[in-house]
Design a protein around this nucleic acid. Structure first.
Length: 422
RNA sequence: GUGGGUGUAGUUCAAUGGCAGAGCACCGGAUUGUGGUUCCGGGCGUUGUGGGUUCGAGUCCCAUCAUCCACCCCA
């Protein structure tokens, strides 16, 4: 008999971990709501072309990491590798670009990339993100960053770093790419193979090559920041000013380059140092050219996305979000058939009032029942046996103190609620 | 896609090429109505899978799959 196995690079979120996932998602939703963002959900697959156009044909995500497939009629789709393009597609498709004004969206859901799995990297992974569409005001660049920082702080994370950069607009990029090519051209023959293609396709990627011999040529390379035109320079200065006013610490790192082609101006990344190689838990930036690139009216926008898996790793490394498993308030024990007839209505009544009550007829002896109550961490044991049947009362034992009292079954819900709610 | 490490019981790990074991967890019991501690009992597991070498393979070799780490990429 063949054993079925979960696909490579995927994982199950088991019940023991679900509370933690629900918790971080709840905090994100609450944080987003407090900034005026509303949830949008899009399909997990889209026309493959949407991602090819938006992320860039030459990007790794499109070239080798996208799950592409044809449906029964030969239409080419892709499992979404990221969340921004679908949101923008929906925005344009619903004619919101014609409506004008600002639109604040957040999303939560799985993304898919055919990558080699490693720590903090999966083939199906869960992202949260926000998109603010309809304004180029630098305040909103800062607001988007502030939202993410607020979220991480609300979770209690302390060891996080914000790195900030501006990649300028399309015009600045052209100038900068030329400057980089001029700078590296004398060493072109000595660069690694990857860098030779980077030289042609994405010169700025020459700056983060890890090959030691390539690193050596990097000293004195021109910085993007020196090639910003006046409006972009001013925009970046204002973003920093707003962050300062909100007391959000950051470091300017000219090496921050977003992986997807659609980013302009502000780019940022949030780093947690002790997560291993995949230490970026969130990243984002402005994408003023994307809406028009997918067929909408020219509209400025900014957003970010964060990864839940890495976020949970970061929480773990700081011993945060330790969630206690749910424990029954009362474990009912019935000895004998007559007692069982009484215990089931009582069980229904308690549960109907929202009290977590357990009962397990599988456990045979009284001792085994008590053990089960203890093993589940129940606060109380409610006992019905011959004595209780005769008296019409049930015995309620406090499993912490060991004290036991005889109570009227009708009073049980109130007693439990009053004793145990803080 | 590239490189390295690791795959043995539910789990954490043992086992010179020679009878596959232990702790924890789990289940049961210690004269059938009182838990936690203690004691006793309960394990044939396709040693990830498929080949090969050998009298004999968990152990050596090859392949494959998975996982971990790194490159790469990115959140």
């Amino acid at each position: 008999m063949m054993r079925y196995k979960i696909p490579r690079g995927t994982y199950d979120i088991l019940p023991k971990d679900s509370a933690k996932w629900q918790y971080v998602q709840r905090v994100f939703r609450e944080t987003a709501a407090s900034f005026g963002y509303e949830e949008i959900s899009t399909p997990i697959f889209e026309m493959a072309e949407l991602f090819e156009r938006s992320s860039g044909e030459s990007s790794d995500v499109v070239q080798k990491e996208m799950y592409r497939f044809e449906d029964q009629k030969g239409r080419v789709f892709a499992l979404r590798p990221e969340g921004t393009a679908p949101v923008v597609r929906s925005f344009v498709e619903n004619h919101l670009d014609r409506q004008g004004g600002r639109h604040k969206y957040y999303y939560i859901g799985p993304m898919f990339r055919y990558d080699r799995p490693q720590k903090g990297r999966y083939r199906q992974f869960y992202q949260y993100g926000i998109e603010l569409i309809g304004s180029n005001h630098p305040f909103f660049d800062a607001e988007v960053i502030a939202l993410e920082m607020r979220f991480l702080k609300a979770l209690g994370l302390r060891k996080i770093r914000l790195e900030l950069n501006s990649v300028g607009c399309a015009g600045c990029s052209v100038d900068y790419d030329k400057a980089l090519q001029d700078f590296f051209r004398p060493h072109l023959a000595e660069l690694c193979g990857d860098c030779q293609t980077r030289f042609e396709q994405k010169p700025r990627r020459l700056l983060d090559c890890k090959v030691p011999s390539c690193k050596a040529f990097r000293a004195g390379a021109p910085s993007q920041l020196d090639y910003l035109d006046e409006p972009c320079r001013e925009h970046f200065a204002q973003v920093q000013s707003y962050l300062d006013d909100m007391s959000i610490a950051y470091t300017v790192n000219p090496a921050i380059v977003r992986g997807l082609d659609y980013y302009t101006n502000t780019a940022f990344e949030i780093i947690v140092d002790d997560l291993g190689a995949q230490n970026s838990i969130a990243g984002g930036g402005r994408y003023n050219g994307l809406i028009s690139a997918v067929g909408g009216k020219e509209t400025p926008a900014i957003g970010f996305a964060g990864g839940f898996e890495r976020l949970l790793l970061a929480l773990e490394s700081e011993n945060l979000a330790l969630i206690e498993p749910q424990k029954p308030l009362v474990f009912l024990i019935a000895m004998g058939d007559a007692a069982q007839k009484l215990v089931l209505p009582l069980l229904s009544d308690l549960r109907g009032r929202g009290i977590y009550a357990e009962y397990n007829p599988e456990k045979g002896s009284f001792k085994a029942q008590m053990k089960a109550a203890d093993a589940m961490g129940a606060a109380y044991a409610g006992i019905i046996g011959e004595d209780e049947l005769a008296s019409g009362k049930i015995s309620l034992k406090d499993l912490t103190s060991g004290e036991q009292s005889s109570v009227d079954p009708r009073d049980l819900p109130h007693l439990l609620l009053n004793n145990c709610t803080p």
